[in-house]
């Protein structure tokens, strides 16, 4: 089985290198053709624009009959990507994988996943809640992450006016909301983690009673 697998992967890497229009790259790590790094630019007109995204690729023994394993190396703020591990929720990486898909077409699918999140089938539930409750806030946070982790240029982001993103920005929270609880003496890190979990953002703030937040903070 491995001969056909090796032939196919090598051909896929060659084809991808030849194709200059897709802007997608696939490179070997340590000369191992079954452990690769894919990369692509963040799609235009999204919060990821200007960023550069790297993906860890592992070719399983039964490839192409079984799906390739991919996860983001670059941190991404997106409902279908775990903000902690980079794990991706996408049907073609699971039971909708088909042997006619390739490394390149799968990376292109990841690119379009960045354009069109699927919040009702999330990988990261907290991020998905943020996306659904407060789209503008979500976009701003995703941009902060793109600048901080994916080398997106800061000039594209109006909201910060060139100021470096704060820990509240990175969590998609409003500074005044964070301060209203740190002023009570709670540690800032704890406040941010609790408000993130409760999706204390946008219109949702009025739905969450202060006592609910305090209960969580005292845990």
């Amino acid at each position: 089985m491995s001969d056909a697998r090796l032939r196919r992967v090598q051909k896929e890497i060659r084809d991808c290198a030849k194709d200059k229009t897709s802007n997608i790259s696939i490179d070997m790590i340590d000369e191992n053709p079954f452990h690769l790094i894919g990369a692509f630019p963040g799609p235009p007109d999204t919060p990821y624009e200007g960023g550069y995204y790297e993906v860890d690729i592992v070719i399983p023994d039964a490839y192409p009959f079984q799906p390739v394993k991919m996860k983001f190396i670059t941190k991404v703020y997106h409902p279908n990507v775990s903000s902690a591990s980079g794990a991706i929720c996408l049907d073609i990486l699971k039971d909708a994988w088909s042997p006619v898909l390739t490394l390149k077409s799968t990376l292109i699918s990841l690119q379009s996943l960045l354009c069109e999140p699927v919040p009702n089938d999330p990988q990261d539930a907290e991020v998905a809640k943020h996306y659904l409750a407060d789209r503008a806030g979500f976009n701003a946070t995703a941009k902060h992450w793109a600048q901080a982790y994916a080398q997106a240029p800061a000039s594209k982001v109006k909201a910060t006016h060139g100021k470096p993103a704060t820990d509240a920005d990175m969590a998609g929270l409003a500074e005044e909301n964070v301060v209203s609880f740190t002023d009570m003496g709670f540690p800032r890190e704890k406040v941010i983690s609790v408000l993130k979990k409760l999706n204390y953002r946008g219109n949702n703030v009025s739905n969450i009673h202060e006592s609910t937040v305090l209960e969580e903070l005292f845990k």
Binding site: F65, Q66, D91, D95, A96, W97, S98, P99, V100
Partner: peptide, 10 residues
């Protein structure tokens, strides 16, 4: 076709 025909095991 993408979900029920092309993938193996369906």
């Amino acid at each position: 076709c993408r979900q029920e025909v092309e993938p193996c095991g369906k």
